[in-house]
Simulated assay, not measured.
Amino acid sequence: FFRRCAHQGGIAERKAMIDREHDLSITKQAEVLQISRGSVYYLPRPVPDADLAVMRRLDRLHLEFPFAGSRMLRGLLAAEGCKIGRRHVKTLMRRMGIEALYRRPRTTKPEPGHKIYPYLLRGMEITRPNQVWAMDITYIPMARGFVYLAVVLDWATRRVLSWRLSITMEAAFCVETLEDALALHGRPDVFNTDQGSQFTGADFTAVLAGNGIAISMDGKGAWRDNVFVERLWRSVKYEEVYLRAYETVSEARDSIGRYLDFY
């Protein structure tokens, strides 16, 4: 039954087919229906309250000082009276999906099977919709937990074409967001992302290549390569997220959705 349904309807319809009372586990049902497990559960990760408080502060500091690494962020926290070790800061930064944003020599290799594509937008004049789309993920704090927000943005119009929330940064969640944008708005000439493993993996790049879309990737740690998405995050955080304390993921989804419609 589930394998037959996997070929019917869109992602929302397939999610509705999940039967939480079925003998087949929810994880297995999601796999067979070809949807991400994270998008089915939609629950914040259990994290100690003390860590959540530090993560919320790190999120604000990262927006103010995008060039700050774990050493500087630890110092900024210490100046505010928060005693925390640098290793702990690095651990929380990894969980949040943030890093210091500055150009540096590439000293690490991409994950096996993941290809890094060149940045194609330098000097390009962006003059029309669907010429260039960009995508990124950001951390969203909640009252008792957190989720991740992914968006696809049109560079010419600054319009948010599609977005999703997830409890993980897994590739499937990003692929679904991309597929939503393609289904609703056609396809761009160029698609730009950072070098995150979600975007360099074969599942994601295959969707772009299969639609004849040129793939562009930021320089490592170079936030200016995707500056319009960074501006969006700043607006989302200061005009929506930091003014709320979402109790549930559904509340976060509804409120963020209203804001993005306005944006």
Rank of each mutant, 00 (worst) to 15 (best):
E240F: 03
A79P: 00
E176C: 09
Q195M: 09
D203Q: 10
L161K: 12
F191K: 00
L33T: 03
A172H: 01
L73M: 15
R56H: 05
G113V: 03
P46V: 04
I137K: 01
D154Y: 07
K28P: 01
G81D: 01
S25R: 05
L243S: 09
E240P: 07
T200A: 07
Y259P: 08
Q34Y: 04
E125M: 11
K90W: 11
S216Q: 03
S162Y: 05
L61G: 06
R187N: 01
L120P: 08
V54D: 01
T127E: 12
A214R: 09
F146K: 02
N211S: 08
V152I: 15
G219V: 08
L161A: 13
E13Y: 13
P46N: 11
T91C: 15
A209S: 10
L232I: 05
P112K: 12
Q8W: 02
A79H: 08
V40F: 12
F146V: 05
V160F: 03
A134F: 00
M124L: 15
L76Q: 05
G38Q: 10
T138W: 06
E251F: 05
I84W: 03
L153R: 09
R3P: 08
M72V: 14
G186Y: 02
A143N: 14
D136H: 03
L260V: 12
S235A: 15
R253H: 11
T107A: 14
H114V: 00
H185M: 06
R244I: 01
Y117R: 01
G10H: 09
R234H: 12
R87H: 13
S70Y: 10
D23I: 06
W223M: 09
H88W: 05
I126A: 10
V47Y: 15
G210E: 07
F262R: 15
V249E: 04
W233Y: 10
H185R: 13
M96D: 14
W163M: 06
